[in-house]
């Protein structure tokens, strides 16, 4: 039941892009075409889950025992940067086809605040529907994965909208990003309908 609540909450109720405002830059940047959008979401999904696993362990077994939680920010961002590089190298060797699909997005992900945001959320935020408030490792992984699914969902929907936008007649000052941002507003309104579903 807890896992179910975590998943619903992370995908719909607290959608990472539309209600938490994380990862907006790539959300606006690569959502011009459906195919790149889905590629990016897959790469983000992969990295967020992996990064959460590693940072959770580092926090639990390195930072907390030595009482140096204040190094969280610096340690996490280094780990994420190193991880992204490593994923890129491994992917290149092991699965060139997957690398072709995700490769160009990987370097962009280091500075995607969604990754660091989720990693920090997992170790600092309290969740009212989880016993004790803090997530354990399994829950953290489910939360990270579901959050990135939510990212993918928002991204794919938005890319679909944008493909239509590019064909429509838009006033000059609205062209490009402004009209896109205004459509996100309407999308965010739709997602607000989910709020309060999970207490």
């Amino acid at each position: 039941m807890e896992y179910f609540l975590i998943i619903i909450s992370a995908i719909f109720v607290n959608n990472i892009v539309l209600s938490q405002f994380l990862g907006i830059c790539p959300f606006l940047g690569v959502s011009n075409k459906l195919s790149t959008a889905s590629g990016m979401s897959m790469a983000v999904c992969f990295v967020i889950t992996l990064a959460t696993l590693v940072t959770y362990l580092i926090n639990q077994y390195l930072l907390v025992p030595f009482k140096i939680e204040f190094l969280q920010t610096i340690a996490f961002i280094l780990v994420i940067a190193a991880l992204v590089q490593m994923v890129e190298i491994v992917l290149k060797k092991v699965s060139p086809s997957l690398y072709q699909a995700l490769g160009i997005f990987l370097p962009l992900i280091t500075t995607n605040c969604a990754v660091l945001g989720v990693a920090l959320n997992v170790v600092t935020k309290e969740f009212s529907f989880v016993e004790g408030g803090m997530l354990n490792l399994g829950q953290a992984l489910v939360y990270a994965f579901a959050t990135s699914l939510g990212y993918g969902l928002a991204m794919v929907i938005f890319a679909g909208i944008r493909e239509h936008l590019s064909l429509s007649d838009v006033p000059k000052s609205f062209k490009g990003v402004p009209i896109a941002v205004i459509s996100v507003a309407i999308l965010a309104m739709a997602f607000m309908g989910f709020s309060g579903m999970v207490k």
Partner: peptide, 22 residues
């Protein structure tokens, strides 16, 4: 209320961008 909530953020930003462009 809408403008304090999430959609309002996008809406305001969008229109401010338009204004800036103009």
């Amino acid at each position: 209320l809408l403008f304090v909530l999430a959609p309002g953020a996008f809406l305001c930003l969008g229109y401010l961008m338009v204004l800036f462009n103009k």
